[in-house]
Computed example of a mutant assay.
Amino acid sequence: MNGHDERHRAPERHVEMRREEKLYAALTEKRGHPELLSHRIVRDIGLHDRAHPREILQPLLAIGGYHHTLMHIADALQEATLPALEREVLLASLLKKNRAWILAHGEHALSTAEEHTFHAWVLRRKNHEPIAYITGEKEFFGRTFHVTPDVLIPRPETEELVRITLSQLSGGESGIADANTDIVVFTHRFREKTPEVFVDIGTGSGCIAITLALETRYPVIATDVSNAALSVAQDNAELLSVPDRITFRKGNLLKPVRDLRSPFFLVSNPPYIPDAEIPMPDVMEYEPHLSLFAGPEGMGVLQPLIEQAMEHPYCTGFALECRRFQAEKLQEIL
């Protein structure tokens, strides 16, 4: 959410031309010599260790105009070297169907373009790229959100953050509540005054702000330090028909609402991973580090955010996603 450490800039590999795309381009240039693909070109581009030659060659030969048998859903489910669930999710997104339809229609033939895309997606997933970035979408609170590598992928623990925030409107208990393994939702009220607006700090994809707008009557202010993230959030607000319910502002921590004169409730899923921690490859290599890491103890955003909330005369309370030890540290300063 904030630029506290230059070492944790967002990964740049998603802007590079993917190796499988280079391979597609190579086929166009070597149209008359498809046999070279499984040897020199595949080796030079660096895909020789990534997949069985047939997995690479079949879609590429089709691009070059060479005959091949159409792939059916059943073939795709058996051929792809990915876990069954991931194959099903990729095919469902590709064909704009649900997983139940995919499993019930094994005889359905993919078009040539769909087959090319499926093979490219499989190769990307084998390189640890998150499925949500491959398909460009992720479900959150029963709704589909557009996501790009400029924003974190919405997760179940953040759905719990939203649920607990909603419960605060009806007098739910404050404190520390489990959201996932070692991840909690920390809520606290400064005053009993009823809020008139939600403020979502570090909105990212906009999943929190948009869900709160759809689930309540309250207006929402959503902030981020990233123009790219704000653009994604605004697109999602349009997609889910709430652009008039949300005000988007650029800025760090509570600075964008410094002059707000309406009682507000703060909600945030800020960066909270300690700098020395190494997440799974699909997170570490692809998700924006700016939204993940926050200093030696992961407190580089949490603590100043809470301190500013305590000082703001119109902040009625907050709900934050963080680690349990971080919530306990924050309790000490309240």
Rank of each mutant, 00 (worst) to 15 (best):
Glu157Arg: 06
Ser167Phe: 11
Val197Tyr: 02
Glu238Cys: 02
Ala74Gln: 10
Pro11Ser: 03
His72Ile: 07
Glu157Pro: 13
Pro271Asp: 01
Glu238Lys: 10
Val42Lys: 13
Val89Tyr: 09
Arg50Pro: 06
Val283Tyr: 03
Val283Ser: 13
Leu239Asn: 10
Leu110Asn: 14
Glu192Phe: 07
Phe140Ser: 00
Ser111Leu: 08
Thr181Lys: 14
Ala209Tyr: 04
Ala179Pro: 05
Asn252Tyr: 01
Asn236His: 03
Asn98Ala: 05
Val162His: 09
Asp182Asn: 15
Gly202Ser: 00
Arg125Lys: 09
Tyr24Ile: 10
Ala109Asn: 05
Ser93Lys: 11
Ile131Thr: 12
Trp121Asn: 09
Leu239Phe: 05
Leu320Arg: 06
Arg323Ser: 08
Met310Val: 11
Glu114Tyr: 12
Glu86Ala: 10
Arg258Asn: 09
Gly204Asn: 02
Ala327Val: 06
Gln326Arg: 09
Pro34Met: 03
Val257Ala: 00
His188Pro: 03
Ala222Ser: 05
Glu285Trp: 11
Arg155Trp: 08
Asp259Ala: 04
Leu260Val: 03
Leu169Lys: 12
Met310Trp: 07
Pro279Arg: 06
Lys126Glu: 15
Val162Thr: 01
Val225Trp: 02
Gly317Tyr: 07
Val257Glu: 03
Gly65Asn: 01
Tyr272Phe: 09
Asn2Lys: 02
Ile176Ser: 09
Val199His: 01
Ala92Met: 07
Ala109Glu: 14
Cys315His: 00
Arg13Lys: 04
Ala179Thr: 11
Pro154Phe: 08
Thr135Val: 12
Arg9Tyr: 09
Met1Glu: 01
Pro281Lys: 10
Glu196Val: 05
Leu260Phe: 07
Tyr66Gln: 14
Gly46Asn: 05
Trp121Met: 14
Glu297Gln: 09
Arg261Lys: 15
Arg143Asn: 00
Glu311Asn: 13
